[in-house]
Amino acid sequence: DSEDVDVGGESGGGERLDKNFGFGKNFEGKYELGKEVGRGHFGHTCWAKAKKGKIKGQTVAVKIISKAKMTSALSIEDVRREVKLLEALSGHRHMVKFYDVYEDADNVFVVMELCEGGELLDRILARGGRYPEVDAKRILVQILSATAFFHLQGVVHRDLKPENFLFTSRNEDAILKVIDFGLSDFIRYDQRLNDVVGSAYYVAPEVLHRSYSTEADMWSIGVLWHEHLLDFRSRLPAKKVTLAFNQAID
């Protein structure tokens, strides 16, 4: 089956988009899909159980990315890059484990570790928006450990926020994992990036000024830390931050 589609170009002609990634084709033969556990702009994440292979019987998370929403060569390359990043970074204690990737005519299926403890954001809100300092310190150490690791691998995340950290279980001392490398990119030590991406409240000034490197992630962590310890969000001019972000994109 062809997975190419025609999209109109500026000249009125058709540009062929190749949506065949070369990934495995037998997802349904190896995994049994369960309920949906999350949803994003380009797809959704489901619970699944492995039917074959090294992790037979194990429950996993499957991120299902719709090919119908891959409407440009750039969006297709974004998917390739995210899979490459997940594979390259898997194995660190605070990185979500990557198991495999598959595709069919309609979707890409990214198979990852299932983290059942919920988002960091949920735990912050459950505590009234503030962590005790000793607990906040334990969280921060894990975030910094993950960030130092992927920075050393030449990766900048660009969307560090409480929603993008998951706990492995509901236990109070559960391990924290960083997820969602959809906006991330590889970067050389002497390189500066200029595209404005991220989440408005956590985005660094350097991003808005279109000249940044890994320090953009450190700013985001600083904002997150103040949320934990000081319930600082209510004191910052959130509307002004969002306005500046939108103006930078425009």
Rank of each mutant, 00 (worst) to 15 (best):
P132G: 05
G40P: 12
V101T: 13
T168D: 11
V134R: 11
L120A: 02
L85C: 09
V203P: 03
K161D: 05
E28V: 04
Y212I: 06
Q153H: 13
R127E: 06
G24A: 15
L140R: 00
I221F: 02
D195C: 07
Y212D: 01
R233H: 06
A200K: 05
R16I: 15
V7R: 15
F165P: 06
A61I: 12
T71S: 12
V110M: 13
Q142R: 03
S66K: 15
H226M: 12
V197L: 04
S184N: 05
V111K: 02
S199H: 05
K97N: 09
R81L: 14
L193T: 01
S213T: 10
S145H: 07
G13V: 09
G29S: 14
R235V: 03
Y99E: 02
G118A: 02
I65M: 13
L160H: 04
E113I: 01
I76E: 07
H151A: 06
K52C: 13
M95N: 04
E10Y: 13
W225V: 10
K240I: 04
N246C: 07
K35P: 09
H44C: 14
S72M: 08
E119I: 00
F245I: 05
G12Q: 11
R16H: 10
V241T: 10
E36K: 15
D18G: 12
L85Y: 12
V196H: 01
D104I: 02
S75Y: 11
A244S: 13
G57Y: 14
R210W: 06
G12M: 13
T214L: 08
K177V: 05
K51G: 09
D78R: 15
V203M: 01
S213W: 06
Q153S: 11
S11W: 12
R123D: 02
F167G: 08
G129M: 04
G198R: 06
K161N: 08
R80A: 07
D135H: 11
A48T: 11
R130T: 05
